[in-house]
Every structure is written in C-alpha cells, then in structure tokens.
C-alpha cells in the first residue's frame, strides 16, 4: 500500500512542472549553446574550420576579404571551436532559444568578413585580422593591437622584432 502514500504525497506537494513556455527557464552556467563570433579578435588562423566536426564553420575567399560563415543549424554544439580558438574570438554562449520557423532558416548563420586592407608599412594587400597576443612579452596594449591589424605578416614580424618582444 506504499503507492497510496506516494499518491497522497504527490497530491499534497503539488506539481513539479517548470513554468517554461509561460515563464522563465533555468539554464545551467556551463550550458553549451549558440556559438558567438567576435570579428575583432579573429586572427584568421582557420583552426575552427579545421576542427569543426559537422562542417558548420567555413572560410571563403571573397573579393572583399576572408568571409567567416557559421551555420547554427549544422552546429552540434561540441565546443571544439571554442577550445581551439587562440584568441577567444569564438565563444559558446548559454543561449538555447534557437527554435525558429523555417522562413528564418537562412538567417540562422553568422556571416562576417575579415576585410582586405593595404598594409600601413609596405602598402601590400593584406587581411585586417587580429594579431595573436597570447604569449607576447610584454603584452600588447590595445593601441598596439589596432596598429598590428593593419600590417601584413612580414611587417608584423618586423614590428615585433623592433619592439623587442618575445612571442
């Protein structure tokens, strides 16, 4: 007759249903949700494209620059891109509100372009990607990072050597 006790307990303690569609929902802090991309920190190393298991991340060369494309509808939320990103340009948020009507399907993507600029040092055409500040001693200041963005790889190397930095 234990089930009667359980039934009465259930009746007295009330429903344990979360109020989600009508109220807020709880999300764990380390929930692996929607991918977020920060163009300003991307070094165009393309490691994320390399590790993305379902091929949700793609880099394309376009006349304007290097286009980063990420399809939320292909992403399997494994978190490898975040793990391998040297500059935290790709981060995984805890957002899971991704259900959408099919007419919004092609909007469920991140399209960002790392544009070509002319190098301020040698005037060659180069990508305005962020430098990789990890392990640079002494660390980059924000102004230096902005300067480095507009330098071609050869000029960056030169600038680093002139600064006496170890990387």
């Amino acid at each position: 007759m234990n089930f009667i006790k359980t039934l009465i307990q259930n009746l007295v303690s009330g429903p344990s249903t979360v109020s989600y569609p009508f109220g807020p929902a709880w999300t764990p802090d380390n929930f692996r949700g929607r991918i977020d991309f920060k163009l300003a920190s991307c070094t165009a190393c393309r490691a994320c494209e390399q590790v993305c298991a379902p091929g949700a991340i793609r880099f394309d060369k376009t006349p304007e620059g290097l286009r980063f494309m990420m399809w939320h509808n292909t992403c399997v939320f494994c978190g490898l891109c975040e793990h391998y990103c040297p500059t935290d340009a790709i981060r995984q948020t805890t957002d899971w509100h991704m259900a959408h009507p099919v007419k919004d399907e092609f909007g469920m993507a991140i399209r960002e372009t790392i544009v070509y600029v002319n190098c301020t040092g040698c005037n060659a055409k180069t990508l305005s990607s962020a430098p990789n500040p990890v392990g640079v001693e002494p660390p980059f200041t924000p102004e230096e990072i902005e300067q480095q963005r507009n330098l071609c790889p050869a000029c960056r190397k030169k600038a680093l050597a002139e600064r006496g930095a170890v990387s």
Partner: peptide, 10 residues
C-alpha cells in the same frame, strides 16, 4: 515548418 536545432535540443 519549424526547426529546433540542437544536438540534442534540450
């Protein structure tokens, strides 16, 4: 009509 992305969705 509706997509619910996630692997698996919660």
């Amino acid at each position: 009509d509706v997509n619910v992305p996630g692997c698996a969705p919660r």
